[in-house]
Design a protein around this nucleic acid. Structure first.
Lengths: 136, 136
DNA sequence: TGTCAACATAGACATATGTCGAACTCTCAG
DNA sequence: CTGAGAGTTCGACATATGTCTATGTTGACA
């Protein structure tokens, strides 16, 4: 990774909020903060992993639940989960032998807030969306 | 300007709607349809380009407006614009010597709908969001 | 204690990606 | 018709990414 940050700032505060894509041009610094999160989601395997975790009972799933759904080796799945975790999209919780991953709603809400104003260019009332409001 | 890529179904219907990340696990086929759009946004330069186009007067900008903002060669910017265009995120319009790019709100709304239910896992009322409603 | 099962890490490999300079295509002014 | 400017395409290159196999680590249990 070209990322030279010694510590990932995404875990405590995954994304700065309230700065949708439209409005004013995004700064380079912020773009470099946000892009890795979208990049992490820009892979079919990781997108399915996120979806599986989110739709799994209790909003969490262990690796043993996820791996069999793919035609990929276990280390590969582990690698993708690590990418999602490093991006701040998944939390990790080890219980006994199993490792459970949970989605982090803040991260998802923050990503959504990027598109809120842009997606509803004509609708205009996306600012009233509760998720965005909760994030700000 | 009939787009020459027969494999990209994104221009007529950028993203299938109403299938957020949570709910039920995303199918492999759909993940492979959605991931390229997020991947296209997963680059700081492209994220800034999208933001600049969206926030530019009239919702469109010509390449000559965008290029000077970056410390990159003009062919590189052109390449990134092509990636965004191929992903269905930007429309292209040539007028005289200049080429104007416009954002496609449908694409943004579709991306947002992915995160709508997920981001507001506890808020719950994201289904009432106007942008999502407009897309479905 | 020793063994097994669940994950993670390391190293290697082929492919994809971002970038550049050079060359090409259009369009307009003269 | 010719020249110049705006963008795109091409070919090359270094680096990043996704995947694998092999190995390491950790916790449960006989």
């Amino acid at each position: 990774m070209s990322n030279s940050q010694t510590s990932l700032p995404l875990v405590p505060a995954p994304l700065a909020c309230c700065s949708p894509l439209s409005g004013e041009p995004m700064s380079q610094g912020r773009a470099e903060q946000v892009a890795p999160v979208l990049k992490a989601l820009g892979d079919p395997v990781r997108l399915r992993l996120m979806s599986m975790v989110l739709s799994h009972e209790g909003g969490e799933a262990c690796v043993c639940d996820l791996t069999p759904a793919f035609d990929l080796s276990q280390p590969t799945i582990s690698h993708h989960l690590k990418v999602l975790h490093d991006a701040g999209l998944l939390g990790r919780d080890k219980r006994g032998v199993w490792v459970y991953y949970q989605a982090r709603p803040e991260a998802m809400a923050a990503v959504m807030s990027l598109f809120a104003a842009a997606g509803s260019a004509s609708a205009s009332s996306a600012v009233a969306d509760p998720a965005v409001g909760a994030c700000c």
